[in-house]
Design a protein around this nucleic acid. Sequence first.
DNA 1: TTCATTTTTGTAATCATTCTAAATTTATAC
DNA 2: GTATAAATTTAGAATGATTACAAAAATGAA
Lengths: 134, 134
Amino acid sequence: MIERIPNLLRAHGIKPSHHRIKVYEYLVEKRNHPSVDMIYQELVQNIPTLSKTTVYNILNLFLEKGLAVMITIDENETRYDADTSLHGHFRCNNCQGIYDLRLDPAAWEWESLDGFEINESHLYFKGLCPECCH
Amino acid sequence: MIERIPNLLRAHGIKPSHHRIKVYEYLVEKRNHPSVDMIYQELVQNIPTLSKTTVYNILNLFLEKGLAVMITIDENETRYDADTSLHGHFRCNNCQGIYDLRLDPAAWEWESLDGFEINESHLYFKGLCPECCH
DNA sequence: TTCATTTTTGTAATCATTCTAAATTTATAC
DNA sequence: GTATAAATTTAGAATGATTACAAAAATGAA
């Protein structure tokens, strides 16, 4: 699993440095739609010299190379997701958790988009998750 | 039209001050999903003493009272929309224009959301608009 | 090793948004 | 109408996420 990450990065035109591998590893293992700070706080424990700028640089590189997508469901901080497949998100306003929503691909086909060339699709819901509905 | 805005504000529990009326008027007349700065730059021409903080205050009040919704389709700035009905948005990465997408209400019914209580729904697409596809 | 390139780092700069307290305006009571 | 209280607006400072930048460190090739 982990030994495949360097090849995956290379396949996307990214030289697999130690930091880049660790950031990608975080994304795929946690699957928690983290902010830059969440990634930084975790990785800095094992890489004491890590700079937050590096995390920004790496994530921007991932976005550019199509290895991750940006999620703007939180108004303050950008979140990131290594799952680049077409899916939606739900954020609970109580526990702040972010859930993946697997939706029928047919649901993403909108007739009113004729003539538009779509590069990104974002579907977000906010409210209360089942646990927080009590 | 315009003389109805005070009543609409009152109906949402908002005292219709001059500034609030002007901000709401901007939203419904332009329908351009503006940022705070866009609203400010326009209104300050007729209200020279206008403060940008006031525009922020008024928009946050509108959000709270359900008179407008927040659109996070732009990564840098929050956009606002006085159309609070269920609809999607498209942002052209070339001309930066934001389009409304009227979608079949049935398309918003997602079976995988059982148990979730939805308060907000956001659907965004990014890419090239028909004009910018050449 | 040496040199060139890439990656990482720390700090400063930027910029949207919020905080705060004072000033102004509006509404109310007398 | 004046005085007082409450609501609104204002200006400037503070916050906080993100980017810019230039130096330092690491990597790779000859």
